[in-house]
Amino acid sequence: MVLSIFFSLTMIVGITYAVTKKNLHIFEILFLWMIILIIHHNFVTITTVNLHLFRFADRLPFYWTIVFERVVLIPLLIVYYFDRMVVRRPYQKWVWLPFGILLLTGLEYLTVNLDLFSYERWKFWWSPIEWLVLFLLVHYSWLWFRSRLRKEMA
């Protein structure tokens, strides 16, 4: 059931992104996807295994759902966000940022409510800060790659 929910969500977001005009170069999309994977996986492992702030569900279908969410849905949502924001003016990007954070915090709230993982010592209000830090790290890594790509493609 939970896998179906997340799979359906991913398909809907994936199809929507696939049919819309891309503003990012394909190299940038790949870069963003991989940098999100690297940063977010490290964050999740450190907070669950080392700091015991979260706890994954013991049931394997639930666990694989959370893996699927981490590998596909979260990077897809963030890439989609960057793709939409890239054509906007810088101040508009910062205005829209809270909505991006709210969306990811909402998704996290859903996973907790569906018992995919539970908070141990984590406070819910830390989640927006977590996503803000992720957005900033991804944003500045992407800017670095983008400038490099522009030089090589010029």
């Binding site: 996807w33 994977l37 690297i38 999740v44 394997l60 490099r148």
Partner: peptide, 27 residues
């Protein structure tokens, strides 16, 4: 170099994705 960067990142992210999925509990 941007191709090399993406190749290295693919290698690192694939390793992280695998290890952080199957090398931690409950798997």
């Amino acid at each position: 170099h941007s191709i090399s960067i993406l190749i290295v990142m693919f290698c690192v992210s694939a390793a992280i994705m695998m290890d952080h999925a199957i090398a931690i509990p409950p798997v």
